[in-house]
Each structure stands twice: as structure tokens, then as C-alpha cells.
Design a protein around this nucleic acid. Structure first.
Lengths: 152, 152
DNA sequence: GTCGAATCTCAAGTGGACTTGAGGTCAAGG
DNA sequence: CCTTGACCTCAAGTCCACTTGAGATTCGAC
């Protein structure tokens, strides 16, 4: 049994629950990085697990990999990120979550009145036109919901 | 100016805020339907706007077009859907919204403690492993978040 | 030395929801 | 009559986040 402080892609995959192909893909996108053995195999530092935790959390909050990469890019190069570094990154999601929750609650409450009135009319119905204020210009409709809830 | 109770695809597009191509696509999937003029052009009933409102609302709640189509398929054929019909459909989303809100709130609260402890460790951190209980078998991680919030 | 498991690269495929483009038809106004 | 714009079909392309497959190499246990 090979014993280092570095992880193979298989080990990283097991510990993170992410497929090796996904990990290679993340590396390609710069979300994580690796050194290589003389024969070309990837070796990951343990800290990669933390980055992956961050990636997963970000995905769960509805961020794209690009956005997550941007966030990770603000981490210090060279030194190992501190607890404060991670806290800073995570805090930006807290507000994102608050936003999403608020949007959904508005949607739900509007749906309540919608059910009451039975309207479901385009433009006026808050459900199909959340956070209202549309009805003016182009009327893309759901333009106000956080992208995470629009998916597609 | 052509004046009927039927809408052209252009009019439907304008009133719904959806692209003509999207409307054709929806028709192809059976979400909406049209009659044709002798020359083969689509004519939509006004009620189509209501269906589209429902479609948009469903998308906003994170349903796939397939799911929305399934819901719409439960509407009565032949007669115009009544208020009660729409109410019944909408009510199923109310619970979906409640679920999503609950999931996000759990996520947010867990994130709070995460920031506190600075852990962000895979498996144990509720943020990357929401609604916990994972850590056992395969550990796909975010397997418990409503699909709508996983997107991808 | 030999075998199987793990890894590598690179190209191509997947799925959802559409959009875009090519090439053609039709309706209304001047 | 002619043009313009709306419309038609059908095939193919786009974006995102990956997965799958082919073909080659390497590691480690026996």
C-alpha cells in the first residue's frame, strides 16, 4: 500500500464521492490542481478535498463552475488558505441563499393568492412573473428569479 | 389588421414573452397545441396563454418540461379547464415550493455553523452534504437536495 | 516475469431546453 | 404585380457539466 501525504485520483474520488472524470474535468477548469509523478500520474494535496467541498457546496447553491472558479481564484496563492479565507468565501453564499429563500417564499405566497383568485394570467400572475415589476418592456418573465432556480 | 379570437404564433410570442421557436418546441412536446390555417400556419386559442403561464411557473419552480407536460395532461380534454382544475395543478407546486424552501433554509443554517466551525470538511459538513445522513454508502453528496437546486 | 487494476490522453457522446440557419411558402399593403 | 415580413419545416448547433470509449501505459502484488 502506497503511503504518502498525496492522494491519487482514485483516492480523491473515493474521499470526495466525485468521479475521477469529474476531477480531471475540474482540474482542466482550474478548480483544483495536481502535481505529477515522473510517469505522469496525478497527485493531489489533501487540501484539495477542502476545495472540492467548496465546489460541491457551490454547486448546491446553484453556482456555475465558472463562478466557483472565480471564487476559488480569490484564495491566496502559495500559502494554504486559512479558516478566515474559507469563511470569507462562504459568507458570500449566505446572502445568496437568503436571496433564493426570499424568492421562493415570494413565489409561494403569491401562489397562495393565485390559487385563491385562480388567475394564473400571464404578466400579472406573480407565479409566472415572480418578484413582479415586469409587464413593462421586453417581458422575459422569470427574469428576476435567481438563475439557480431558472435552470436552463 | 387580422382580427380573430385566435392568435398567431407571433402574437402568442409577444403576449407570452416566449420566443416563437420555444412555442414551436412546446407544441412539439405537447405542452400546447394549435390548429392550422389552410396554408399551414398555426393558430392558438387564447387559453394557450394560461397554459404558458403554467409552463413558465413550473419552470420557475424547477420542474422539467416533461413533468409540466405530465401535469398538463391531467387537465380535462375537450372542455376548457376550470379554475378548480388550475387550482388543483398549482397546489401540487405549493408543496414543492415548501420543500425547496425548507431545503435551502437547512442549507443556510448549516452554513451558519460551518462558518462558525470553519470545517467545510467533506462528508461531515452539512453544506456540501446537505440534509445529512450521507457518509454511509456511496456518498454522492448532494443527493438529498431537490433536483431543482442541483441543476446539472 | 506476468497479470490485473489503475491511470493516462483525447475525441466524442449525453441530456435538457432551446436557438439558429437554410431554403421555401404565403398574405397584405402600395 | 411585387415586395416585405411573417411564417413554415427540418437539420444542426449551443451551453453546461460531465461521462464514455478507445487505445496506450504503468504500478504493485504475486
Amino acid at each position: 500500500m502506497r503511503t504518502t501525504d498525496l492522494l491519487t485520483i482514485g483516492e480523491l474520488s473515493q474521499r470526495s464521492g466525485m468521479a475521477p472524470s469529474a476531477l480531471r474535468y475540474y482540474e482542466e477548469l482550474g478548480l483544483i490542481s495536481s502535481t505529477r509523478t515522473p510517469s505522469g500520474r496525478r497527485r493531489f494535496e489533501r487540501g484539495t478535498l477542502r476545495r472540492l467541498a467548496f465546489v460541491r457546496a457551490g454547486r448546491n447553491v446553484g453556482l456555475t463552475l465558472e463562478e466557483i472558479a472565480a471564487a476559488l481564484a480569490t484564495l491566496p496563492e502559495g500559502r494554504t488558505p486559512t479558516r478566515a479565507d474559507w469563511t470569507r468565501l462562504s459568507r458570500t453564499w449566505r446572502s445568496r441563499l437568503d436571496e433564493q429563500i426570499a424568492a421562493l417564499q415570494a413565489l409561494r405566497d403569491d401562489l397562495g393568492s393565485c390559487i385563491g383568485c385562480g388567475c394564473l394570467s400571464l404578466r400579472r400572475c406573480a407565479l409566472s412573473n415572480p418578484s413582479d415589476s415586469a409587464g413593462g418592456a421586453g417581458a422575459t418573465g422569470a427574469a428576476y428569479l435567481p438563475t439557480a432556480l431558472r435552470r436552463g
